[in-house]
Structures are given as structure tokens and as C-alpha cells.
């Protein structure tokens, strides 16, 4: 298999905001961690290894990530993903107006990246972590997702 083909298979998508909603809903029954990020975003790149490590450990959680890199940055994105080999799919974003995309993903999201959204098993968004956050913050949100499920059942 050529290098180009290898690179071509590491990215999924593209997804628009509705597609992201469907991707999250497809994991109903498990908590979901959705991260929106970009290769040009320094804190996104910084938190990527911790997110990947958490995803490798937490098999009970579905991890999804969506890159908001522009089509012009696709080569940088492919190289990044090929090198890091994250244990979760990396979707690209369907080109279009930023605001419709941001609001479509979550009205409370300011558009800052990284943004990490945590959903409970029923697909309810229980946390929106905007900007730099740690693995511990995501774990806390996951604990909340579990607790809220317990409270509702």
C-alpha cells in the first residue's frame, strides 16, 4: 500500500454539525467524549496525548474527534494523525460558515478550540470544556455523566 493510501485512511468524515450529532447518537448506551480541535491550535496539540491515553484506557467510553482545520491544512492534519495514530476516529469538518457549525454542535460553545463535549449514555451533553483542559477534567466530566445516569434511572 502506498504512503498516500495509508494517509488517506486515517481521516474520517467530513462531517457537518448534524453529522456530528448523528455520530454521537450512534454511540447511545455509552458515554461519548467529543473533541473539536485543529493542528494550528497549540493547546489542542498539547492535550492530544493525554486524550489518546485516556481513550486507550477507557474502553467503556466512545471517543470522537473533529478537526476544524481548513482544507488547505489537510496535509498537516494527515501527517499529524498518521504520526500520532490516535485510538479514535478523526473526522474532518465539512467546509461552511463557522457560526452555523459552532451553534449546530452546541449553542453554548463559543467557538474556542480545543472544545471537549461529554455526553452521557442517553446522549445528553453533561459537560462543555472550552479551551485548555486536562485529562483529570475530562475524567471528572465522565464521572458526572455516570452519576447523572444513576440519578435518572
Amino acid at each position: 500500500m502506498s504512503a498516500a493510501l495509508l494517509l488517506a485512511v486515517v481521516l474520517a468524515g467530513p462531517l457537518d454539525a448534524a453529522g456530528i450529532g448523528r455520530a454521537v447518537a450512534a454511540h447511545r448506551g455509552r458515554p461519548v467524549v467529543l473533541t473539536l480541535w485543529a493542528t494550528w491550535c497549540e493547546p489542542c496539540v498539547k492535550e492530544f496525548p493525554a486524550l489518546a491515553a485516556l481513550a486507550r484506557e477507557r474502553k467503556d467510553v466512545a471517543f470522537l474527534s473533529v478537526s476544524i482545520d481548513e482544507p488547505d491544512d489537510r496535509k498537516a492534519l494527515e501527517a499529524f494523525v498518521a504520526e500520532r495514530r490516535p485510538p479514535f476516529p478523526v473526522y474532518t469538518r465539512t467546509p461552511g460558515p463557522d457560526q452555523a457549525f459552532i451553534d449546530g454542535v452546541d449553542r453554548e460553545w463559543s467557538g474556542v478550540v480545543p472544545a471537549t463535549l461529554v455526553y452521557d449514555r442517553e446522549g445528553r451533553r453533561v459537560a462543555l470544556l472550552q479551551g485548555e483542559h486536562t485529562r483529570a477534567d475530562i475524567e471528572k466530566a465522565l464521572a458526572r455523566a455516570k452519576a447523572e445516569r444513576g440519578a435518572g434511572s
Binding site: 497549540e42 476544524i68 463557522d98 457560526q99 474556542v112 478550540v113 479551551g131 485548555e132
Partner: peptide
């Protein structure tokens, strides 16, 4: 009011 992507203020 509008929204757009941008870099996080550090």
C-alpha cells in the same frame, strides 16, 4: 453578536 473559530487566549 457573532461567533468564529479562534485561538484560545492563554
Amino acid at each position: 453578536e457573532t461567533k468564529a473559530f479562534g485561538c484560545t487566549i492563554k
